[in-house]
Every structure is written in C-alpha cells, then in structure tokens.
Design a protein around this nucleic acid. Structure first.
Lengths: 237, 237
DNA sequence: ACCCGTAGTATACACATGTCTACTCTAGTA
DNA sequence: TACTAGAGTAGACATGTGTATACTACGGGT
C-alpha cells in the first residue's frame, strides 16, 4: 500500500459513485438504503461498513469529492476568462457607472456565466447532489455544503479583487455580491441542467441578474462615498 | 356530509400534518414510509390508501395546503405594508436614482423584508417543506412548487405595479427583479428559521441584496431609456 | 327503516432492510 | 516464507415495509 492510502480503495469509490448516481436519479441521500447502494455498486451489502459508519459519513465523503472536483477547476475557469477578457478589453469603453465600464462588465459577466453553466452541465451529478443536499434534511450535510459554498464565495471575491474587476467596491459589498451570485448560479444551474431547451434563456437571466447586482452595488457604493450634497445635486442620472 | 366534502376528512388532515412534521424533523418526503406516517398520525397504516394513491399524491396535497396557507396572507401582508408606508411616505425624499426615491425604497424594503421573515418564522414547517422539496428529488413535487413560486412572483410584480412602487421599470425588469427576490427570500428564510441568533444579520443581508437589485434595475433602466449621448455626457454619477 | 358509500381497522404475507458474526482472499511487511 | 491487516463475501436473524383482502362503524339520503 505504497501508492494507495492516498487513492481511495476500489470499493469505496464504487460505493460513492453508486450513491451519487442513485441520488441524482431517484432520492435524497438519507433515503437510500445501504443494501441498495451496495447493489448498485455491484458489491456485497456489508462492504459499506468497511468504509463508512453510516449514511452521513458516506455523504460527507461524497461532498468532499464533489467539492474537490469543482473548486479548483471553477476558479481556474474564472481566472483564465478574466485574464483574457481584461487584457484585450482595456481598449473600449461604454457608459460608466461609478467608475466601472458597464460594457466591459457585461461582457465579463456574459462569458463567465456561460462558462459556469456549461461547466455545471458537464458535471450534472456533482451539482445536483450539492444543491439538493444543501437544502436537504441532514444538518451535517447542509453544514458541510454551506461551508463549501462559503469557500466558493471567498474564491470569487478574491479573484475579482486581485484582477481588479470592480475596484471601487468595498470588501463587504463585494463579498455580499459574490455570495448572492454564487447562490443564484448554483440554483440556476439546476434549471440549466434539467431544461436543455431553455438554456439560452436561463443564461440570459443569470447574466441580467448579475449585471443588475453589480450595477446596483456600484451605484450605491458611489452614492455612499460621495458626500451627500454632491449626490443630491447630481440628481437623477 | 353537507359541511364536509369541502373540509378534508379527519384522517386525511392528520396524515398530512404527520408527514409535514416528519419531513421537517427528519427526512425528505420520498424517504418517509407509509406506515411511518400512519404511526405518527396515530392511524392504521392502511388509512393512507383511503386518501392517497402514493407518496407524490400526498406531497401534492401537502403542497397545495402549504401554498394556500402562504399565498394570500403573504400578499395581504405586502399590500398593507405598502399602503401604510407609501401613504405617510410621500413627504420625505432622499437621493433619487432614475426617478426613485432611494430612502423610501430602502424603508419599504426594510419593512417588508422583516414582515416576510417573521411570517416565515411563524410557519417554519410550510417554508421548510417548500424549499426542501423545491430542490428535492421528486420531479412532480418540484414542478408543483416551481409553479407556486411563479405565482408568488406574479403576485409581487402585480402588487408593486398597482401600488406604483418602481413606476419607471419596464415589466420584464420588474418581473425578473421579483423572481430573484422571491427565490432569495425563500432560501434566506431557511437560515432565518434555523439560526435564531443571526436573524438580524440575515434580515440586513436580505435588505441589502434587494436594495442593490432595485438600484441596479433602476440605474440600468434609466441608462436604457435615455439616449446614449445624454447618458455618456452624464458620465459618472 | 333501510341502504350504501366513506373512513377506518385487523390480519396476513411476501419481501427488503440493517446489521451481527464468521469466513476468505490478497498484497505488503517482517 | 509466513504473518497480518485491510477489503470483500456469505449467511443468518430480527425487524420493518408495502400492500392485498376482508371486516366494522357510522352518518345521510331515500
């Protein structure tokens, strides 16, 4: 067991994959039976106990896997998109709000939203289990997934900060923006996965929602940082 | 059976209440057993079959009940709040964005968010089942709940329209705004119900998110309706 | 007064489930 | 080469489950 120990045992992986498949296509994790999972994995019922104490433990293991499968790739996707877009995007400019180039933001949002949703569509099981159990009945799984979501949010906020998108937004507003965005994107990805015929519309909705949020945050931020008098004089835009 | 027929049979209600209680405190609807529900309701297992063909049918019945319990009251709450706030609110004014009085909007949002969350906290079972099964494994329950959510959204949009909050927003943007708001409020209500010690912070988050959305929508709308030249000249606000 | 449909109950059965104990196989270590 | 721990299997058992069939209680309409 030199190579092993890092690589999970054969049966363990099989069980996790079986459970994941079953969850996606039939019921919530807690609703699955131990024998049922073993059967789906082509293993003896008792093999389960060699690797997990109970269902929640299986759930946590699956979630850990799922998060590992999503977190870094998602981040890489975002950073690559940001870097290529911002590089060539320095040129043009549209109407600007609170110092942000709206056109550029819209473009960035459009691209990253698409990348995210297509990414989700390629890993439907991971996303479905995540969202399902995030709102599921097991407190321990909910907690694990909430923490995972918080990490996604932190990643996004950090990336937006280091790449200087939305430079004038204060940290709190940026973080809040990411929180809502991540939450909504995960939920929307369910629809995106499920309703192939409405994908374009869902992407447009997501896009519009995020642009609205960013615009709102930018506007409010500028209102807040300019002194009241100036703001009032500025009147309606 | 003169009065009855409109009123559900005794046992039927008992079963629905039992299932609701079990879902909230243990597992997803599909994961419940027929005998288990009967037991919780203090009835014979077979009584279930007198009223429901299967679990999904029970689920649909519960959902119908839950929606009835929420829809009208929620609407009434909103309309009352809007009417009292807008009446006395005509006076003051703060910085305005795209023709909206930001202070007034903030106040309306603050009050209605609180009302909503407190309303949710008083009907935790209804909200929890709703959100849980909205992301659950049963397609038929998901569909029913999605339609219910769509109705909530339509209600909200209609109310905002007849009360002339956000008058300059076009229908599409208004509808989209309501969609996101309702979705987020339901999800946030889970946290609100569960984490009593963080209620104020959750309410503040919800408030800030909605104000951001409204501000963004208003800003974008005004950008869109003014011709480009004027917008560009206006520059940053 | 009678009937009948509705709601609820009792019993029964075949089967699935969680989990215990004991066995086997295999790959790595001493 | 022998030993051992980890991974998988086999069989067994008590318990729980879905559901079929058949029974009872009752309230309203004729």
């Amino acid at each position: 067991m030199s190579v092993a120990k890092s690589v999970a045992a054969h049966g363990k992986t099989l069980l996790m994959e079986a459970a994941l498949a079953l969850v996606v296509r039939t019921r919530s994790l807690q609703a699955l039976g131990i024998r049922e999972i073993g059967r789906e994995a082509g293993l003896n019922p008792n093999t389960f106990y060699r690797h997990f104490k109970n269902m929640d433990e299986l759930g946590l293991a699956i979630i850990e896997n799922v998060v590992n499968e999503l977190r870094e790739p998602l981040r890489k996707l975002r950073l690559e998109a940001l870097d290529t877009l911002l590089e060539k995007g320095q040129i043009e400019s549209g109407p600007s709000i609170a110092g942000f180039d709206l056109q550029q933001i819209h473009q960035v949002v459009r691209v990253t939203v698409r990348l995210f949703l297509e990414f989700a569509a390629k890993r439907p099981n991971a996303f479905m289990l995540g969202v399902r159990e995030l709102h599921g009945a097991s407190p321990v799984l909910r907690k694990a997934l909430r923490e995972a979501m918080a990490n996604f949010v932190d990643d996004m906020a950090e990336d937006l900060k280091t790449r200087n998108v939305l430079p004038t937004l204060d940290d709190a507003r940026l973080h809040q923006l990411c929180k809502v965005t991540i939450r909504e994107m995960f939920i929307l990805s369910m629809d995106y996965i499920e309703h192939k015929d409405q994908r374009e519309q869902i992407a447009l909705e997501a896009e519009s929602m995020i642009v609205t949020l960013v615009t709102g945050a930018a506007t409010l931020s500028s209102l807040q940082h300019n002194e009241a008098g100036k703001v009032l004089r500025a009147g309606e835009i």
